[in-house]
Design a protein around this nucleic acid. Structure first.
Length: 572
RNA sequence: GGCGGCGUACCCAAGUGGCUAAGGGAGAGGUCUGCAAAACCUCGAUGCAGCGGUUCGAAUCCGCUCGCCGCCUCCA
């Protein structure tokens, strides 16, 4: 049994190799707590939960660390909007986050560090970078000099030149090349315009600053500033224009950064920011940049080289790239052995995200379906493929989930107290100890999961076992094998995040939930069932069928058996 | 423009060189049942976006075309 995991850095599947035999450290980038979590976050939570459960099942002693980012521009901004302290806003959304994690049935991480509790470690890391000449302080900010980083871009497969020139530039109809930018724009009908040798028009955006700065300050002038968002393309283009026109240097220093690609390690405090978002440092009051917290927490909790580090695809660049730059820059040793990134949840073929506004919160979805259904839906697709959310796929998952539980419920009804309830988080049993009829399912499941956590294939194995169980139950023989299947299916299901509780409980809870949703009264249903039973005893099948049809029309489906009639609510 | 990825049945989704292309949902036929429901059995892609190529052999490798998505800006 050898687990192979895809590694983002090498771009290949690699056998999982732990630094300390039998032990694994896993660091996952968690959430920034400024809003509720959506089902994209659920995918991350569920995927890493499955990874941890499987690693433990495979016999590893796992230290699972997932951080909480509780200081950040967005938190400060939201808190200011609501006129509350940023710590209060953060603590509110830590609360909703933990409630979501619990509702999804995810394991708690072993350590859940918060950025604000690790400021000293961050400052220490920055000091080490400064000592090595990689970080530089500038006006109260501290930046990481990307040019001093060997192999910068190795994770996200980017070249420095591409990054400089690359920004998002659309090719207009009249551009010769994608990067060309407008100096003067021809006027469209109705637009204000000025006469020029090229006809009526108006200046391009960048030109005005070149012109005005030169008029009032000359060229070159000392210091040119602006927000970070202006570095590219605005300031880049100002330089191009001015220096291209005059052959002289434009400005001696452009903003606080020495190079547009440098990223901030420490941000100088600003007057408009609240006091609780300011910390003392050798560079004056300020707060950490986004990336430094993860480097500091990961290395202080798990060591300078950690086994596995993960997150969503969108974190590869720049977040994880910069974590590598900082961490390796400071320590001189490899930061992470395995980089694991999962794809997104999409909705209508588009990435679900807060900025697009097309998200469903975890809470909203869990009002519609049990957590196990959402988990089943999420693990039915391999983690490196995008998963498209739709009402139909949620309904499909709901039916599939019912199929799993019904099979287990049949066993529980038949064998009841004879069954061992395996503890979730159980390790893989010795394969030789398994009954011959369950062994192939166990082995195939493990083979699928060992193959880069192929939960979709593993789920297929689970359903194969369900069919086998139903066959055995229909035949009514080999109770011992049936009991072992129950244990096996429960253990395997638990890794995928389903079947962790007695199946009858799930089915009852589902029934109650749907009944409440449909506004039906169980007492009335029981009364009609009693009427029908009486009619059937009297061989009045016509009347009996009429009652059944009436109930069916209201969403209640009956199931006759030797021991009486049971009922359930049809899928919505 | 740079980089990365995707396109498999009515829907979702595994499969990345070689047995009959997993599994779930929906559908059709059958067994069981007074009739149903559930379960079980059987049937659904001679074909994997299209076109070429490599190979004894390709959904799987290579090239081109079409369609779609992600990252490059805060993002799981």
């Amino acid at each position: 049994m050898a687990l192979v995991l895809h590694d983002t850095l090498s771009g290949r599947r690699q056998p999982l190799a732990s630094i300390v035999p039998g032990k694994l450290g896993l660091y996952v980038c968690g959430v920034t707590v400024y809003d509720r979590c959506h089902i994209g976050h659920a995918r991350s939570l569920v995927f890493f939960d499955m990874l941890v459960r499987y690693l433990r099942f495979a016999g590893y002693e796992v230290t699972f660390v997932r951080n909480i980012t509780d200081i950040d521009d967005k938190i400060i901004k939201r808190a200011a909007e609501e006129t509350i302290p940023s710590a209060e806003l953060a603590s509110r959304y830590i609360g909703t986050f933990r409630a979501d994690v619990a509702a999804l049935g995810c394991l708690q991480p072993d350590v859940e560090p918060r950025a604000t509790d690790h400021i000293p470690e961050m400052l220490d890391l920055i000091a080490r970078l400064e000592k090595r000449g990689i970080a530089y302080a500038s006006g109260g900010d501290v930046y990481c000099s990307v040019a001093r980083i060997k192999d910068y871009g190795k994770l996200s497969k980017r070249k420095l030149e591409d990054l400089i020139a690359g920004a998002r530039v659309e090719v207009g109809e009249r551009k010769r090349e994608g990067l060309d930018f407008a100096l003067w724009k021809a006027a469209k009908p109705g637009e204000p315009f000025w006469e020029s040798p090229w006809g009526p028009g108006r200046p391009g955006w960048h030109l005005e600053c070149s012109a005005m700065s030169t008029r009032y300050l000359g060229q070159p002038f000392d210091l040119h500033g602006g927000g970070e968002d202006l570095i590219f393309p605005h300031h880049e283009n100002e330089i191009a224009q001015s220096e291209g026109a005059t052959g002289r240097a434009f400005a001696r220093r452009l903003t606080a950064k020495h190079d547009p690609l440098d990223f901030v390690l420490w941000k100088a405090a600003r007057a408009d920011e609240p006091d609780e978002a300011k910390w003392e440092s050798p560079y004056g009051l300020g707060r950490p940049g986004w990336h430094i917290e993860c480097s500091a927490m990961a290395t202080s909790l798990l060591g300078e080289t950690i086994d596995i580090h993960g997150g969503g695809d969108d974190l590869i660049f720049p977040h994880h790239e910069n974590e590598i730059a900082q961490s390796e820059g400071a320590t001189g040793t490899p930061f992470v052995n395995h980089w694991v990134h999962h794809a997104f949840v999409r909705i209508n073929e588009e990435k679900m995200s807060k900025s697009l506004g097309n998200f469903l919160t975890i809470e909203e979805v869990l009002k519609r379906v049990p957590a196990e259904v959402l988990r089943l839906f999420l693990v039915a697709t391999h983690y490196r493929s995008p998963v498209d959310f739709s009402d139909q796929s949620l309904i499909d998952a709901q039916r599939a989930c019912a199929r799993l539980h019904e099979a287990l419920a049949r066993i529980e009804e038949k064998l009841g107290a004879q069954l061992d309830v395996p503890r979730s988080g159980a390790r893989s049993p010795d394969v030789g100890a398994l009954a011959t009829s369950v062994r192939p399912f166990h082995e195939q499941f493990v083979a699928a999961m060992d193959d880069d956590l192929n939960s979709a294939r593993a789920l297929g194995v689970v359903f194969d076992e369900v069919r086998e169980i139903n066959r055995l139950l229909d035949a009514g023989v080999d109770l011992q094998a049936i009991a072992e299947h129950h244990g096996n299916l429960s253990r395997l299901g638990a890794i995928l995040g389903v079947l962790r509780h007695p199946a009858a409980g799930y089915l009852e809870a589902e029934k109650g939930r749907r009944l409440a949703g449909a506004g039906l009264d169980p007492a009335e249903i029981e009364r009609l069932i009693a009427d029908r039973a009486a009619a059937r005893r009297a061989k009045d099948f016509k009347r009996g069928d009429a009652i059944r049809d009436e109930l069916l029309a209201r969403g209640i489906v009956l199931k006759d058996s030797a021991s009486g009639t049971t009922w359930s609510v049809v899928d919505s």
